[in-house]
Design a protein around this nucleic acid. Sequence first.
DNA 1: TATGACTGTTCAATAAATCTAAATAATAAT
DNA 2: ATTATTATTTAGATTTATTGAACAGTCATA
Lengths: 302, 302
Amino acid sequence: MNQLEAMRIFVRVAEAASFTQAAQALGLPKASASIAIQWLENLTGTRLLHRTTRRVQITQDGQVFYERCKDLVADMEELQELFRLHPSDLQGRLRVDMSVGAASNIVVPRLPEFMAIYPNIDIELSASDHFVDVIGEGFDCVLRAGNITDSSLIARRLGAYRLINCMSSTYAANHGTPQTLDDLKNHTLIHYSLGFGAKPTGFEYVDSLTGEPLHVPVTGSLTVNNSSAYLAACLAGLGIIQGPEPGLRPHIDNGSLIEILPEYQAAPLPVTLLYGNRRHVPKRVQVFMAWLEKTMKPQLES
Amino acid sequence: MNQLEAMRIFVRVAEAASFTQAAQALGLPKASASIAIQWLENLTGTRLLHRTTRRVQITQDGQVFYERCKDLVADMEELQELFRLHPSDLQGRLRVDMSVGAASNIVVPRLPEFMAIYPNIDIELSASDHFVDVIGEGFDCVLRAGNITDSSLIARRLGAYRLINCMSSTYAANHGTPQTLDDLKNHTLIHYSLGFGAKPTGFEYVDSLTGEPLHVPVTGSLTVNNSSAYLAACLAGLGIIQGPEPGLRPHIDNGSLIEILPEYQAAPLPVTLLYGNRRHVPKRVQVFMAWLEKTMKPQLES
DNA sequence: TATGACTGTTCAATAAATCTAAATAATAAT
DNA sequence: ATTATTATTTAGATTTATTGAACAGTCATA
């Protein structure tokens, strides 16, 4: 049995409090995770995880062991990369998550550049519009828009999306183009919400002169929790949307969408890069985050 | 490949500057050592050891890697033993070297006590009368009599052997028993020397009243580099020997040897426990050294 | 210069481990 | 109760590691 590998597995299992999730994040069968922990427990002579078939929780000893494991595993990783001076020498797996929009509009189109520089880094790019558990699911870093609440992570602010208002040309033909915020009352606004339980709150604007926040309640009955469905709804002429410029700009340019009320801007949506609070961040993660920042910057303001 | 195991092998190979010696010390074929180093070099992307078929020398990178490896391997070992509170939980292999005399007269007879307390510690006891390379041959600790010159090791003084003078009863019948140091001129002294090249220098004494050193040149032609041969020569009636009391006492008690000139004592022979200058000494080595000290003490003076 | 002893590497057969997949057993939620 | 989920076990297939012998350099000696 590979002790180091077993320790890596243990760290993951302890963080995710789940064999299944940890195994999935590590890309190996859950049977292996199970055996690895048993082997470690046998090695240390201590029960590290108290587990029923339904719940995994760390024991007191396990907690102590976990802290030291995390450091040692990180030290090992650092040691491996000690002599990797050239980009192409960097290797290993990178697990990243970001919104569907950021992935498909900004990152993926430019990913070939990164992969050309670092051909030996394997990338697992998860694109999802719901929040993910950075630690538990084993992501090296996660790109999020909106306000961050989880303080157990290191958050690096990259900038903010400019939010613009759009309608499709077919919708414009049917309903006309609003010129003032008041006009919006006669239009259908499509709402984007992450949690289905959350009540649609309407569109928010900042008065471009006074800086005062303005609120326009949502009128209309469509709420969507997925950004591509949101865009699709707008393209289908179902109503007006308010979203990050980078994802909408191409459709404006090709004429399928029309930007409206450009003088009424919503407060920009902050974009943040989150990563685990580990003592040592592997070099491959460092270079990816640097590249991601460089790539995102031109699309962001402030 | 087991990274940790590879690192252990690398540390050994680097210290011994030899694949063959390191492999032997670790109890595995040299092919494994060779492969492990290659695997590590591939992992780090750096040449760690510059090797011809006849010489192994560490590279600059290898030196850096070595320092960190040594620490990490020690940390790992410490981690394993974190939860081992009970003696019987301690496990692993212990490589020890001492003189043939100390081994057969003092340590081995009492070793069952140690093995009863720590049944899961495997002991490799090397008994040799020549000096050994503690680091290079991978010994956890070494017990030596005489003056220690190697300052790269940690030396713990346990005490000193009282040196006594003996002859066999048959020799006494043939040649009589000397009563003064001057009488020794008419007797045959058997000399003990580690290196065959070293010139026999005679017996040394300390005047019990004045504390002045007294020298009696060796008369006789037998020099031996092995303590059991030394004793055997005396038992065979070939002459007078001067040696550590613990090894001779049993033969005096059963009448086959006779202690002579008890009022003329040689300077006691210091007994030292040597171990590698590692940041972390495994617990199993600690407990063995503590036991060894306790066991040796009654046999030593000062 | 040739020989002999010693060393690190290679290689193919063997041994061991891991993975896959499916079945099992146990628990919390419905 | 029932269902869904989870950790564990099991067995065969596959991959990987180990090892002892053969190989190919290198240094010391004659």
